[in-house]
Design a protein around this nucleic acid. Structure first.
Lengths: 193, 193, 193, 193
DNA sequence: AATGAATGAGCGTTCATTCAT
DNA sequence: TATGAATGAACGCTCATTCAT
């Protein structure tokens, strides 16, 4: 009996371990040797599981997208008012700040290569985006698409500011502020049909 | 009787032309040869003006930071209510969307290398950040720092969404929405002393 | 009236200042920029006086060869016995050790390039060699060519040992020893016709 | 199941083949491409075995030093008088003249770079020097350190003269002469205790 | 499946040399 | 005469990728 290894399973494990590497150094700056070394395998093995560096990167992005990026749901359930929920969201984001910063790095890197190279757009991004929308709806109960995008954009912006070492911005405070603003705004609006 | 060239002036001209290149391909992916070719000079000449690729990149970031990043002021003067001003700001950003997307690319790239390499933090970033704050104050008349960061974060997030090809997000609409939300929010608050 | 500068005179001055540079770094490792900088002129000026790096180097070797390499004569005159003269020679060499080490560096470098490149053998070396012979004769009164070469070889070897950081070898002691050996050897020999 | 190559063994083989190259062109003038080509490998392979040009050079010098530089011992055994032994030594050196000339080139080059760069002094040189002393003692039976250095310096000087294309100097004749001089000198001395 | 030796194009950078001023 | 900007081939070195084992 040969060594039974689930090829696909192992591939995914390797993939997971690549996240930090790509995020911290960037696609172009990280080398296959460094990746292999970090994974504890040889370059040959790496190429056994991934046809090329680009494919590895694309699969990584795909995997991250597919994963429940917002593990938030579970954590945010049970809260009551919009303001309370926004606060909980803020805390959740702040707690996972490092992860989301890396995720931003990866996305920006991916988009850059998508623009300039032959990297295939992969609809994983679209799917992820739709998931995000759904989460906002599920958690915050907001259905107006414009408001959803507003919230998502703010979150992106907050993480971007943190990524840029802006010590003045507090994710939790800003999320709480967003909660208040949303409340104030929605109270003024006539309830949509 | 040397060849008459204003060394410093020419250096800055070269620098300006590098912006798109670094933004579109990223620091690690663009090569000095490509840069030289794009600038219409030889690699030797490039190195006559910049001691290294890293120095070139740092000087570029410095230059962009120093430049009035928001030429907005002039364009936004004369508007009246906060909502009107936010709408004008939205239009301005939308008009210069491509530029700001590139600027985000550059900043993210710079931060990544700042983290992982010996790239000097250069306080140009800090200065730029302070400028941004000032602009929000001057143009929108908002003094509360938290609100300022809220607005800046949202703007960053909007541009980031556009960078990621999110066709669902409209910078102008979102800015207008921000205007309304700010108005609603400020009306509810007791006037600060 | 134009600025009157003796082109040839200035060329020789520049040449003299190059000695240390070539000796310390080697022909291939020293750059024309470094030389120019050390001389306090521009590379353009350097090329105004010397058609190429190789020509500069060849002229330098030529100049050193032509110069009275052994300023020894004057310093060694008046001494009496062979042993005394060898001792004086030893002191003289030890005093100028650094210079002679550099001179060895230069010669070895030159020979290496002569072998492997198209560098012209320049009979300056031959002339220098003849001078050396003459000096041995004049100072030490030794006419036997084999003995002359023996002495010159030993001197070369001593300097070479010093160049190689051999702290065990003392030029003065060894020269004194040579004096004694020569004396012992000559006494045993029947006087040549 | 890797490709079967004895890494260390192969490294040493490559090293051996580098001797002539470095000796004939000099450290700074020989290029890694030339070396690779001469060895019949690619530059990539060269760097697979040596981390840098400098390391390659240092390892080379180390290897030569460690090797029995004087294979002389075997060859010189069985001779009787000092004069006979010196003659045998002379013949041996003359026979391997080309090798020793190259070895001198290498040593001078190494010392130059040791002086001017961060090349580590490597005590291989010291060890080699001690070996040389031992050889003089073993072969010639001379224990006086000063005489040992005298002999070694003369040998160095003779090879240096040959390196400089001096056709007038004959290594064998000079060694024979040295034999006679030593004999004459030692006869005159009171035997040391 | 797994290894790591091997490749060679291409990278950042340097340098002898030229030439307009 | 003197300058230093400009060139581009070539340097030391790296890297994604291939392949014999």
């Amino acid at each position: 009996m040969p060594k039974i290894v689930d090829h696909d399973q192992y591939r995914k494990e390797l993939l997971s371990k690549c996240f930090d590497l790509f995020a911290e150094k960037g696609y172009a700056a990280i080398t296959m040797r460094q990746i292999a070394e970090s994974l504890g395998v040889s370059t040959g093995t790496l190429y056994h599981y991934f046809p090329s560096k680009q494919a590895l990167f694309e699969q990584l992005v795909e995997q991250i997208c597919e994963r429940d990026v917002f593990l938030a749901k579970a954590e945010l359930e049970g809260t009551q008012t919009l303001a309370e929920r926004m606060e909980a969201l803020g805390k959740f984001l702040a707690k996972n700040e490092d992860y989301y910063i890396k995720w931003i790095y990866l996305q920006v890197d991916f988009c850059q290569h998508q623009d300039s190279k032959e990297m295939q757009g992969s609809n994983a991004f679209q799917r992820a985006t739709e998931q995000y929308e759904q989460i906002i709806y599920d958690i915050l109960g907001i259905q107006d698409p414009m408001l959803t995008w507003f919230i998502l954009s703010l979150i992106d912006g907050l993480i971007l500011e943190r990524l840029m070492n802006n010590e003045m911005v507090s994710i939790t405070e800003q999320c709480a502020l967003l909660g208040k603003m949303l409340t104030a705004y929605l109270e003024k609006q006539p309830t949509p049909p």
